[in-house]
Write a protein that binds this DNA or RNA. Structure first.
Length: 340
DNA sequence: AAGACGAAAGTGGTTGA
DNA sequence: TCAACAACTTTCGTCTT
């Protein structure tokens, strides 16, 4: 059963609604990701194509024809887990507070009222006041019982703030909070700012989930310099022995391309170029965003959708000079048929 | 006039003695 | 700890469209 909603960009979307006759829910062969493709019969405003794909890993909906990203702030509306019967389905829809690593005590906490009244509103006798006072004191101490808990509570709200600003999907946030927790457990935060470690955890989580954000982008929305994020991230990955593959320039291509308004042919052309360049070893030691920018620039020229170097540079977060250097290397070493 | 090009000097971080 | 180094940036003058 489908329920139509009007998206704010004016595009009609469909949303899956959990109903008894929904076949996917009870099909154990379906993967989570299968279930989450909820956009159907939607039209791309650019080319009118109806082939849209919702990519919940990157939190983007894009058109397979022209590559336009229609919505890059996708909210994961599906149920928390797969459900196999009625009872579970009721429990597992995304309602209430699921247990999550992003809340410091998972939302379980008790407060003792500061007023000296009992539940009927009567005053508490003076002889008991001291006892209540002690209870309150201890309750406060227990709730946020240690500096560790205070730290975590602050860090997780900061993490939420930063990742909202970056439009990061839930999976990345969970992953980042797990990283932060283990850093805290190993007492690696001492001597470092909480913001810095939060930013670094997010950076690691982003790269792990192949949703790369540059150090620049992260330091822009958090109150940490790029230098500090970089230092902390290296420290964390060493101490927690997190192995990270170097970011592939290809991971940046869809995001940059859609921000530039390039077609999907240009995207795949750029990816082709990058693959060739990687095979020839032209990308090693080079900043991946610079390589991605140059490949996109070349692709845009080849397909006569030319973008200026400045526009590409700005979106990719590199300078025009870097793009020039990169694409000079590309054109010199790769036979691309057409001279620029 | 805007964009592309390239030289030269500067910056921040890594590496190896 | 320091110098050498590679990648990248900043700045600026010149050429091209």
């Amino acid at each position: 059963m489908k329920n139509e909603i009007l998206h704010d960009s004016g595009i009609l979307k469909e949303e899956n609604v959990l109903l008894d006759e929904d076949p996917i829910i009870n099909d154990p062969d379906k993967k989570r990701s299968d279930y989450y493709v909820v956009e159907r019969q939607t039209k791309c405003p650019e080319c009118g194509s109806e082939d849209l794909i919702g990519d919940y890993e990157r939190a983007e909906i894009f058109c397979t024809e022209c590559g336009l990203v229609i919505d890059d702030n996708l909210v994961d509306m599906g149920p928390e887990w797969r459900a196999f019967d009625h009872e579970q389905r009721d429990k597992r829809t995304r309602v209430g507070a699921p247990v999550t690593y992003t809340i410091h005590d998972k939302g379980l906490s008790t407060m003792i009222d500061w007023r000296n009244k009992d539940i009927y509103g009567r005053d508490i006798p003076a002889r008991n006041r001291a006892q209540w006072h002690r209870l309150r004191k201890w309750q406060r101490k227990i709730r946020i019982s240690s500096s560790t808990e205070r730290n975590l509570a602050f860090a997780l709200s900061e993490l939420d703030r930063v990742s909202s600003r970056l439009g990061l999907p839930r999976s990345v946030r969970e992953s980042a909070s797990v990283i932060y927790r283990s850093a805290l457990e190993r007492k690696l935060i001492r001597g470092r700012s909480i913001e810095g470690v939060v930013a670094a955890s997010l950076y690691i989580a982003c790269r792990r989930c192949s949703v790369p954000r540059t150090l620049d982008e992260i330091s822009e929305v958090s109150r940490v310099t790029k230098k500090e994020v970089g230092r902390t991230y290296r420290f964390l990955s060493r101490e927690l022995s997190i192995k990270l593959m170097p970011t592939s320039p290809i991971d940046y291509v869809p995001r940059f391309a859609s921000e530039l308004g390039l077609s999907s042919e240009a995207q795949s052309r750029a990816i082709e170029i990058i693959e060739k360049a990687m095979a020839k070893g032209l990308t090693s030691g080079r900043g991946p965003n610079g390589v991605a920018a140059a490949a996109l620039y070349v692709a845009s020229v080849l397909l006569t959708e030319r973008k200026t170097q400045r526009d590409v540079a700005e979106i990719a977060g590199v300078t025009e000079v870097t793009i020039r250097n990169r694409y000079k290397e590309l054109t010199e070493n790769l036979d691309m048929g057409i001279t620029l």
